[in-house]
Design a protein around this nucleic acid. Structure first.
Length: 860
RNA sequence: GCCCGGAUGGUGAAAUCGGCAGACACAGCGGACUUAAAAUCCGCAGGCCUUAACCGGCCGUGGGGGUUCAAGUCCCCCUCCGGGCACCA
């Protein structure tokens, strides 16, 4: 018998004997129906409300049609927070939307002959139903964003035109990453270890194509420097972005190339990029990338060179594809040319080397083997000279290569004796004054290529004027006026994977007129990268129905920055760097006041099953639908919060969900037994009786603990454990409770508070209990309970007594006991005394901290 | 190679500022209820030694060293696991 049917049998069996049985299958859909009927249930209040605002955002999903456990965890965290903050009196914006453009819709269209739009909207409906079933508190009616609808993507087009105006969008021919399976280009960020991020076994090819780019590099410095002032973002994410931007400060220096070793006639110049211009007197050769323009030229007339270069190019390509560039053995070939070091006048042999990359810096370096490990390795192999020009203080004999920078120059002409740092500045200035170099900065970050040869994306609002007109060559590119927006995606499109843009085959779309001269024109048939959609969607949430502008600035300025953004760390560079870029552009356009989109970012851990990330290929996927069907939505989402703190990976164990479900059932029965008492209770809770005092103390300690863990630590697992402890205490006292050792008002206080404390984690059950107890209003609209320090205070404390750091006994004392009393009591304890026999007390420490008191007797 | 995380019972974990290690659960074991089972309730539960049993003792947070009256927590060294970056000049 499988587990599901065991469970079902159990339920039906229990139904007959136990009418009070917890039945999430009945409770949850009933409340869901009621909540669905109130479209503005979770609507934020206008910015004129006097409440402090709280923008709680979870990353929007791609509408695959199936919610997975990763989503459930992500959204359970966000929902608990949103519900908590509402109860704490904040005006909470908690939206959800759909990252609805993208390739899967086209693949599905091809496979099932369903139009992408239809397929996508059907998936959205399915996932939305799942989300409602779980009870996430999103404002669906007010602000849902669906990126594949023209009401949204027209603003992508609008932003694109604004970027064209500002010189931030431009077209250029370049080598691009091409995935044959996607039949489209990929941004650098979408290439992982030389392979497509969507097809891990597909090696990415390089193709030369005309592409649209967004000039993210203009913001490279700001994107990098801003990271230092983002304490609310995980250090890990900031580090990843720093690495990705890869700013490297150094200098460019030009070396004149001469035809032969002793010839002085300049035939070309080689520009190198170096971060260590201070080592230039130690340069003993030059190394060019095999794909360097000069090398290509020289190879034309040199069969031997040409052959060697071809080998190196192939080698680099292969290494790049397997991801272990960096491990290939260094080798090179001399070109027979020499270059002149502009600082020394020395001639240096020019080589081509396989460890030089064409697309970083200038694709050429000066080789300083004495002060660079790679150059040293290369020089050793080919017995090139090694010339020391840097020494650390007191390290004249330090082995080469010496790469320290806290050091001084030797044998470096006028710069001898200077520190590396000073020489770096002064030598760059010298080069600039003499016209053969300058200080410069390079970045690993490249401009963002946004063209995709796909159908299911935002059309790029540009046309090519066929005849040309004044100031424009035939075939030149013309931006459409804003009045022409939106450029609608045509509905009837044949989707194939034969390469090229599907839109190019739609005649009605392709052919148009030039907005300037009225002559015939062709539309741009590429569509935008879907990361454009997700770069600004969270602004649209603040004003999702606006048909005149992407959003209202005043409203956006009220809500932004996002107070808490929650999502997976897999978006640490892609989405999160593009959205930071977009925010800065919008700020410069005057649309918003903030420079960063989110004050705080939280990246939750993965959901793991049997030690591996859940995936179809591993066959270890647990479906949220199954969990909800067996244990209910409350148990499923609460388990996702209970099983581990949110930043850690979470191992999904179905027994754990069953455990939470049993706990909720226990709560349900507990409240069920006393709900009539609660309904009829009047007056204020009292702490007159000993049991009342004890239970109220537990309650207020629990409230304090949960409030603290929720706000300061985000340890939902310990919040839930605290609720369990409280419930255990109340049920443990039931015998006394039934004897009337507690007033009905106090019992009511306990059980009502319990429902409130459960509300962020198990909203269905909390709502049900609240109603059963006859409390007015919706449970999630109540104020979060406030801990009363007076009631929470213990009147008796337990003090551990250690002898030489080892626990001897725990003694009970009145809370007011002073140090002298504690000392006396600790010495009077029998177990302690037993350990003091024949010993001398050296120290008698009484530790008194907020967390508790402790005694340590140091004896000899 | 470099940079971040992490390692605590059979399992997930807790210990928040250096102060009782293992809260809360899961799985397990014992008991109550039941013709029986399920469900539910009560209890036990880090390891080792000692004991008929209690009582008691010792060890214990990946390994080794250190600081301290006191270390899972701080410092130094090392191992393993996860992630990111990587001939980036």
């Amino acid at each position: 018998m499988d587990q599901a049917s065991t469970w079902d049998a159990a339920k039906s069996g229990a139904d007959r004997n136990e009418p009070q049985r917890y039945n999430p299958d009945e409770i949850e859909p009933r409340w869901q129906a009621q909540w669905d009927a109130q479209p503005d249930l979770y609507a934020a209040e206008p910015h004129t409300s006097g409440k402090p605002k709280f923008y709680c955002l979870e990353m929007l999903p791609y509408p695959s049609g199936q919610l997975h456990m990763g989503h459930v965890r992500n959204y359970a965290i966000g929902d608990a927070l949103a519900r908590f903050m509402r109860m704490r009196g904040y005006n909470v914006l908690h939206p959800m939307g759909w990252d609805a453009f993208g390739l899967p819709a086209e693949n599905a269209a091809q496979k099932n002959n369903t139009p992408p739009r239809e397929w996508t909207l059907k998936n959205i409906a399915q996932m939305k139903a799942q989300m409602r079933r779980i009870g996430f508190s999103y404002d669906w009616a007010g602000i849902e964003v669906t990126t594949c609808l023209p009401e949204y993507y027209r603003w992508n087009q609008w932003f694109f035109l604004k970027m064209v105006e500002r010189g931030l969008a431009y077209r250029k021919s370049s080598k691009v990453n091409w995935c044959p399976q996607c039949a489209t280009v990929l941004a650098n960020e979408q290439v992982v270890a030389g392979c497509c991020w969507r097809h891990e076994d597909q090696i990415v090819e390089q193709r030369e194509l005309e592409q649209w780019f967004l000039r993210i590099t203009r913001y490279a410095d700001e994107l990098l420097d801003g990271l230092d002032e983002m304490p609310g973002w995980p250090e890990k994410v900031r580090t990843m972005q720093r690495n990705w931007i890869g700013r490297s400060e150094g200098a460019e220096v030009e070396f004149a190339v001469t035809a032969a070793a002793d010839g002085m006639e300049e035939t070309a110049r080689i520009k190198v990029f170096t971060t260590r211009i201070d080592t230039i007197f130690g340069a003993t050769s030059m190394q060019l990338a095999p794909e360097h323009a000069l090398v290509k030229e020289w190879a034309k007339a040199d069969a031997a060179l040409s052959g060697a270069v071809a080998t190196m190019v192939a080698e680099q390509k292969a290494a790049r594809e397997t991801g272990d560039i960096g491990n290939i053995e260094k080798h090179g070939v001399a070109t027979g040319r020499t270059a002149i070091n502009p600082f020394t006048g020395e001639t240096l042999p020019v080589w081509v080397a396989n460890y030089i990359l064409a697309d970083y810096g200038t694709g050429a370096i000066m080789s300083v083997p004495a002060h660079d490990e790679r150059d040293f390795e290369f020089a050793s192999k080919y017995e090139l000279p090694v010339k020391r020009v840097i020494v650390g203080a007191g390290e004249e004999e330090a082995p080469l290569p010496y790469i320290g920078e806290d050091a001084f120059l030797i044998d470096s002409g006028a710069w001898t004796g200077q520190s590396c740092a000073a020489a770096q500045q002064e030598m760059a200035r010298f080069a600039q004054e003499h016209g053969f170099g300058k200080k410069t900065t390079t970045y690993r970050l490249k401009d963002w290529g946004v063209s995709r040869q796909r159908y299911w994306g935002t059309p790029i609002p540009m046309v090519y004027c066929e005849r040309g007109h004044e100031g424009l060559q035939p075939g030149g590119v013309v931006p459409l006026p804003e009045s022409a927006l939106p450029v609608l995606l045509p509905e009837q499109v044949e989707i194939t994977h034969e390469g090229g843009s599907p839109l190019a085959r739609v005649a009605e779309f392709l052919h148009t007129t030039c907005p300037v001269c009225g002559g015939p024109a062709r539309r741009e048939t590429d569509t935008m990268d879907t990361f454009v959609d997700s770069s600004w969607y969270f602004y649209r949430y603040t004003d999702a129905k606006d048909s005149l502008q992407p959003f209202d600035s005043q409203t956006a300025n009220y809500w932004f920055p996002i107070d808490q953004y929650i999502g997976g760390v897999e978006h640490a560079i892609l989405h999160l760097i593009y959205s930071r870029f977009w925010t800065k552009v919008m700020r410069d356009m005057g649309l918003i006041a903030n420079s960063e989109p989110a004050e705080r970012l939280f990246t939750q851990g993965m959901v793991i099953k049997d030690g591996a990330k859940m995936s179809k290929s591993k066959g270890n996927v647990v479906s949220p639908d199954d969990m909800i069907a067996r244990y209910g939505a409350d148990a499923t989402r609460m388990y996702a919060l209970f099983a581990a703190p949110p930043d850690r990976d979470l191992e999904w164990q179905e027994e754990g969900v069953a455990g939470i479900s049993r706990f909720l059932a226990r709560v349900y029965r507990l409240v069920g037994r006393y709900r009539e008492v609660v309904r009829e209770a009047t007056g204020k809770p009292s702490a007159a009786l000993e049991l009342e005092q004890r239970l109220l103390r537990s309650l207020h300690q629990t409230i304090a603990k949960i409030t603290e863990d929720f706000q300061a630590r985000w340890h939902f697992n310990t919040c839930i454990a605290a609720i369990m402890i409280l419930v255990n205490e109340i049920t443990g006292a039931e015998a006394a409770l039934d004897k009337g050792e507690i007033s009905s008002a106090t019992l009511a206080e306990l059980l009502r508070s319990l429902a409130l404390l459960l509300a962020p984690f198990a909203p269905f059950l909390a709502a049900e209990l609240w109603q059963q107890m006859g409390c007015p209003g919706q449970v999630f609209a109540q104020s979060w309970p406030v801990a009363d320090a007076e009631l929470a205070r213990e009147n008796e404390i337990e003090v551990p007594v250690q002898v030489n750091g080892k626990l001897a006994n725990v003694i009970k004392l009145p809370a007011q006991a002073d140090e002298a009393a504690i000392k006396a009591a600790s010495l009077a304890d029998e177990r302690v005394m037993a350990r003091l026999v024949d010993k001398t007390i050296v120290k008698h420490l009484v530790i008194d901290k907020a967390s508790g008191k402790l005694v340590n007797l140091v004896v000899k």
